[in-house]
């Protein structure tokens, strides 16, 4: 830190911020993830490509003849023979979109998983369908029919006005407190939260409370349907295990 820099929040912030920033700081890929990324990305990287290729027009990537420049690139797991990746770089830079660049590799050495790449074919076709836009909006009352396929939470209207955000945690605290004695009231509070804070910071927590309330009220199919929607909307949520535990009761 330079002498004039302020004390970082990781040292001088609230306990929550310290914990959050510590956790954020440690969020680096583990060894397996790093290895997978290296195998995926490193073969695609070239030494500096001297002249920038001419800008690609929309949809032109597939038509561009970018002559192949086969070269040996020393990859972490071996030598990768990389063929024509400048076009991939150009297409990426042209804003083809995340996941829109396909580098098909037909390995000339299939036994080498380290990414011996030969004659990559670059396509501008999207490979990954855009993830549905998810936002934080009130969930409608779910039907008791458990066979309904879960759908992600829909996008809120841009015109939605939220209530005072400072009161958001208090409302959910009331909902949580009501769980013990009056789950119906707890559920009503979560519905109130959904109306007032469609983009709230605590939407996931609201959903967990609502699911627990439904379980306690004996409305398990609704709880399961809501849990399925939660899973679809918040994959990898830190609350997933708790929801599983609630549904297992």
């Amino acid at each position: 830190m330079s002498s004039g820099d302020p004390i970082r929040l990781r040292e001088g912030g609230s306990s929550f911020l310290k914990k959050a920033l510590e956790s954020a700081r440690s969020d680096v890929p583990n060894e397996d993830r790093a290895q997978a990324l290296e195998s995926k990305i490193l073969p695609l990287l070239l030494p500096p490509i001297p002249p920038a290729p001419p800008p690609l027009g929309a949809g032109a990537a597939g038509a561009v003849k970018a002559g192949t420049a086969a070269l040996g690139a020393k990859a972490g797991l071996g030598f990768a023979k990389v063929t024509m990746l400048a076009i991939a770089a150009a297409a990426v830079l042209a804003g083809a979109g995340v996941g829109a660049i396909v580098v098909s590799t037909s390995s000339s050495a299939p036994a080498a998983p380290s990414g011996i790449v030969s004659a990559p074919v670059v396509s501008s076709s999207p490979v990954v369908a855009p993830e549905p836009s998810l936002a934080l909006v009130p969930l409608p009352q779910v039907s008791a029919a458990p066979s309904i396929a879960p759908k992600p939470i829909a996008k809120p209207s841009a015109s939605v006005e939220e209530a005072d955000p400072a009161l958001e945690p208090a409302l959910l605290r009331q909902a949580q407190d009501a769980l013990r004695s009056n789950p119906s009231d707890a559920l009503a509070k979560t519905q109130e939260h959904a109306r007032k804070y469609p983009r709230g910071l605590l939407v996931q927590e609201r959903e967990v409370i609502a699911i627990e309330a439904l379980v306690k009220m004996g409305r398990k199919p609704e709880a399961e349907a809501r849990a399925a929607r939660f899973e679809k909307s918040f994959p990898g949520s830190t609350h997933a295990r708790r929801i599983d535990a609630l549904l297992a009761k």
Binding site: I41, L45, A89, V92
Partner: peptide, 10 residues
Amino acid sequence: CQEVFVVVMR
């Protein structure tokens, strides 16, 4: 990440 490193190398 791939996009970043492609730009970096380029």
